[in-house]
Amino acid sequence: MLEFIIQNNIVCHAVEAMLFASVACAILGVIITQVQISSIGFTMAHAAFAGAAVGMFLSINVTICAILAGVCVAFLIGPLSDKARVSPDTALGLLFGISMAVAIFFIAYMQTLGQGFSAMGLLFGDVISLYREEIYLLALICVVAVVLVVVLYKEITGIIFNKRIAESVGIRVKPVYYAMLFVIALTVALCLPIIGGLLIYVWLVTPAAIALQFCYRLSAMFMVAPIVAAAISVSGALAGLEYSLPVAPLTAVLFSVVFIAAVFLSPKRRVSFRKY
């Protein structure tokens, strides 16, 4: 898609993948951070990671396994906390622990079988060996994330403001909430091979946290977060490939540096007499 700007095929694929993944993650990250379901996002990311590890071990489609595991966790949290009479937070802790145990078990086992290299890709991501179909899928999930927010913007803002108030004004909270979780699970699963199970959370949370330092309105956050994420991710991909550095960890570090700078530069922490 970007061949007319970047001639090198490998670099072009890497930049495209990082661009689409970062935009999708940043848009959904605004929802995750503002609805305060970061722990759900975190657990879903690790469940998708576990699903991918199982898929890789069983030689089944890694992406489908990751999607199934992520979606299962999203829909298990509520029933698990009800049936086991534990708080949702404890249920998330349990699911996170199980996910990590499964993922680490299969990755370690694959290493003993000599398949360690491909398994490591799941941990730290790999932007080099991407197929064109994978990039199309990332572009598609990027469009799905944008469409979700545009079509359900009203309902999503209501839920972000306060779930109980949203329910009390007649918003159908449950279906919208589960639609959000489903798209998050889908995005996490598709982004996992390029960003990696250990780092994907940076893409989900940091761009929204950066945008929050400067934006007073949610609509502005939905614009700023993906722009910031795209700029950092593309820079990270180009710099990583140019200087032969691992792309996803380098980009994650860049995200963190920009976040720290944003906290210091944020006008929200300055005392001023600005009239709104």
């Binding site: 503002q34 079509v151 359900l152 009203k154 309902e155 803002t157 209501g158 403001f161 108030i165 949203a166 004004v169 007649g170 918003i171 159908r172 929050l212 934006c215 007073y216 309105r217 949610l218 502005a220 956050m221």
Partner: peptide
């Protein structure tokens, strides 16, 4: 990240309907 008028408008979201 919500202004007062955005919060008040939310009061009509259920009436306006999905989408």
């Amino acid at each position: 990240p919500f202004t007062v008028e955005e919060v008040v408008l939310m009061g009509r979201f259920g009436m306006i309907g999905l989408i």
